[in-house]
């Protein structure tokens, strides 16, 4: 499979009155065509900022200060805003968000909003695009006659997320970015939406970046998982291996924190809390909370290295190729 997206050394900062927040600290991500990548991590780890950067949606006070984002071989950070709008955003890649109802425009009917998207990406008139709306709505499992004339406030969370999916996939994107698409939904509705997304993405051959804090969701939906912590990518692996053989102490801590039905085990959690990214810890950003911390961790930031085929980790325990017992 060919490479669709390649993010290298991406650095993003936010200027605030408290100082500069180093939100992304030189991250590396990649994605093949039709592949599904999960980005997991806790609040403030930079998972949403990564996605917004790929869409080039970082606005002041945020700033991309370094790195490259190769999408289909072109560095999209070098494109003009106009080219980005005309050729990439909403054409080759699209995005769905956590709060579907607030992501929709409250003053227009659902049908019109979908038509607008279709018109924009196919360069056709709104009238012509409107004829394609029923098909879009049926595709996401909505009764088009009943839903086409509804306003966003009349939709339930699940229906609104279906509409968002219809809009995002109507343009047949190469890459779909889903930022916590089911976090605001009830579990049964979450299961429905994930199943729908799974079917549609299979048919549409879209590559997906799924951002979630729920490791269960990521593990079921994705081929590969990237774990982020405090603005760094700390581990990348396929979705089975990351749960069976996590390497990074943070990933281990995260997995041992998840309550699992029938597991009847004590939850250990991770001591301490997430660092303030205005003045992140020196060296490895996880070292103040890490049980395995040694001198080198306090001074030298670890780099991502491949321990076994396809399994990358950024931790000094594994540098020099030695695997800790």
């Amino acid at each position: 499979m060919s490479r669709l997206l390649d993010v290298e050394n991406l650095r993003v900062i936010f200027h605030t009155y408290r100082g500069t927040i180093k939100a992304l600290n030189g991250i590396r991500l990649w994605l093949n065509e039709e592949e599904r990548l999960g980005i997991v991590g806790e609040t403030g780890c930079g998972k949403s900022v990564s996605a917004l950067s790929v869409m080039r949606l970082i606005e002041a006070p945020g700033e991309i200060i370094d790195g490259q984002i190769l999408f289909e071989g072109n560095d999209i950070l070098k494109l003009s805003e106009e080219d980005m709008d005309r050729h990439i955003r909403g054409k080759r890649m699209s995005m769905i968000f956590q709060e579907p109802i607030s992501a929709l425009n409250p003053v227009f009917k659902v049908g019109f909003q979908i038509a607008e998207t279709i018109a924009h990406c196919n360069d056709i008139s709104i009238g012509d695009a409107y004829k394609l709306v029923p098909e879009s709505l049926e595709m996401v499992g909505l009764d088009w006659k009943r839903s086409i004339d509804l306003y966003p406030h009349e939709l339930s969370g699940g229906m609104a997320q279906r509409v968002m999916i219809a809009m995002a996939l109507a343009i047949k994107p190469k890459l779909l970015i889903a930022d916590e698409p089911t976090s605001a939904l009830d579990v049964t509705i979450q299961a429905q939406i994930l199943q729908l997304l799974d079917e549609l993405v299979k048919i549409g051959k879209n590559a997906v970046i799924l951002i979630t804090h729920d490791l269960g969701v990521a593990s079921e939906f994705c081929d590969r998982i990237t774990v982020m912590y405090a603005g760094n990518v700390i581990e990348i692996s396929n979705s089975e291996e990351i749960f069976d053989e996590p390497l990074h102490p943070y990933t281990k801590g995260l997995i041992s924190s998840i309550p699992i039905i029938g597991a009847s085990r004590e939850l250990t959690g991770i001591p301490g809390s997430v660092p303030d990214l205005v003045s992140p810890p020196s060296g490895c950003r996880f070292h103040p909370r890490c049980d395995f911390c040694f001198d080198r961790c306090r001074t030298e930031p670890p780099t991502l290295s491949e321990i076994s085929p396809g399994h990358f980790v950024a931790c000094h325990l594994y540098s020099d190729g030695v695997k800790e017992g």
Partner: peptide, 11 residues
């Protein structure tokens, strides 16, 4: 019970 995503058991 069925709707809960299971961790590390694939699809």
């Amino acid at each position: 019970l069925e709707a809960i995503p299971s961790v590390g058991r694939g699809k």
